[in-house]
Simulated assay, not measured.
Amino acid sequence: MADYYSLLGVDRSASAEEIKRAYRKRARDVHPDANPDDPEAAEQFKELSKAYAVLSDDQQRARYDQFGEAGVGGAAGGANFEDLFGNGGGLGDIFDAFFGGGGGGGNPFGGGGGRRGPSGPPRGQDMEVAVAITFEQSVFGDQVPVDLKLPQTCDTCDGSGAGEGTKPVTCSECSGSGQVRRVRQSVLGQMVSTSPCPRCGGLGEVVTTPCESCRGEGRVTTDKTYTVDVPAGVVDGSTLRLTRRGAAGPRGGGPGDLYVHLRVRPHDRYHREDDDLVTDVTISIAQAALGTTLELETLDGVESLVVPAGTQPSHQFVLKNRGVPRLQGRGRGDLRVIVDVEVPTQLSTEEAELLRTFAEGRGESVGEAGTGLFSKIKSAFS
């Protein structure tokens, strides 16, 4: 058998309280009812109990520290369950503590006195829906309708599931507790476990005359439309949670939540970089050299953009506070306009001469007339 301290996962200098806490934790992990498919679980639990029985007793622990397992002989027959779990709780009460069957005030796993009552109708499922919004809606926010089908409380029976003039009755199998207790014998003694009642599903009540509209479920699936407040500045992939807007629970159970996943459609001119809006504008060589004023269509309306003479390609103009509202703060990002200078690919003879004259005046070397690609192809066949 392994060292008792190693079995419990504590140091040899561990206090009595540390040993007790370690045993309770390990007991949960190796308990046979928690490991029904592990044939070795019962033996592991038995060895763990022996280790605790020795180390929780000062005299036996002292003999074990001096002589090992031989020093305690057959004394390690089992853990002092009355000391560990309080109030003289038997083995069945221990397993109730493990698996939710209640327990006395001395139960180290929590819970006050008395058996647990029926858990009541279960909460409805959480629902998810994806909604497409425009780029502008993501920037400025909007109220967006969301259409979906989801279970809702039956109006005919008001969620009880019972037919007209009737009501649910107490379950005869669990007497309204919503749980059943099963007792079985094992090498460790009597084991007790609890589980939801199979007849009433843990509700504590059964419907003998089902409602015709919902067939006893207490809810029906219908079309529903919610208006969702989309905050300004949301990004693609954002998820909004609408509390208690999900599916209604069966038999009067509370509703779950609704999760709305936002999909932002791309814009034909703008894109986001954090809280900034970015767009490109194309100007000609003459406009870049001589300057110009552009009418820029922003998401806020038309803005006049002054392009000074000598503007270079890829120059960036910044319009302050014309970007996206900040979700986590005040103000807005900026609007950044990136300039692209377009070089003409085809020139008339007059335009080419004007450019050549301009280049000569600046002392710049340019191609001779008739040295373009078309002229070279033409000369190859002459």
Rank of each mutant, 00 (worst) to 15 (best):
D126A: 05
D126P: 06
D126M: 08
A130V: 09
A130C: 01
V131P: 02
A132I: 08
A132G: 05
I133M: 03
T134G: 10
T134H: 02
F135M: 07
F135Y: 13
Q137H: 12
Q137A: 10
S138H: 08
F140A: 08
F140H: 06
G141E: 15
G141T: 15
D142C: 03
D147C: 03
D147P: 00
K149A: 09
K149W: 14
L150C: 08
P151T: 03
Q152D: 07
Q152F: 05
T153H: 05
T153R: 14
C154P: 10
T156K: 11
C157V: 15
D158A: 11
G159Q: 12
G159S: 12
S160F: 11
S160E: 10
G161H: 08
A162E: 04
A162C: 04
E164H: 02
T166K: 14
T166L: 03
P168D: 02
V169N: 03
C171I: 02
E173H: 12
C174I: 08
C174G: 05
S175H: 15
G176Q: 07
S177W: 01
G178S: 06
G178H: 10
Q179K: 10
Q179I: 11
V180T: 13
R181G: 04
R182S: 11
V183Q: 10
R184Q: 12
R184Y: 15
V187C: 05
L188W: 13
L188Y: 14
Q190R: 11
M191K: 01
S193D: 06
S193Q: 13
T194H: 12
S195R: 12
S195E: 15
S195I: 01
S195P: 05
P196S: 12
G201E: 04
G202N: 13
G204P: 12
E205C: 01
E205W: 04
E205G: 00
V206M: 10
V207C: 03
T208R: 08
T208S: 04
P210I: 02
C211N: 14
E212W: 13
S213P: 00
C214P: 11
R215F: 12
R215P: 00
G216Q: 15
E217F: 06
G218D: 02
G218N: 05
V220G: 00
V220K: 01
T221W: 07
D223H: 06
D223V: 02
K224I: 10
K224W: 15
Y226R: 09
Y226C: 05
Y226L: 12
T227G: 07
T227I: 15
V228A: 07
V228N: 08
D229R: 14
D229K: 14
V230G: 06
P231L: 13
P231Q: 11
A232K: 11
G233I: 09
G233A: 05
G233Q: 07
V234W: 01
V235A: 07
D236I: 03
S238Y: 14
S238G: 02
T239L: 04
T239K: 07
L240G: 04
R241F: 02
R241T: 11
L242D: 07
R244E: 13
R244P: 00
R245H: 14
G246M: 05
A247I: 01
G249R: 00
R251I: 05
R251K: 06
R251E: 04
G252M: 14
G252R: 05
G252W: 04
G252D: 09
G253T: 12
P255Y: 04
G256W: 00
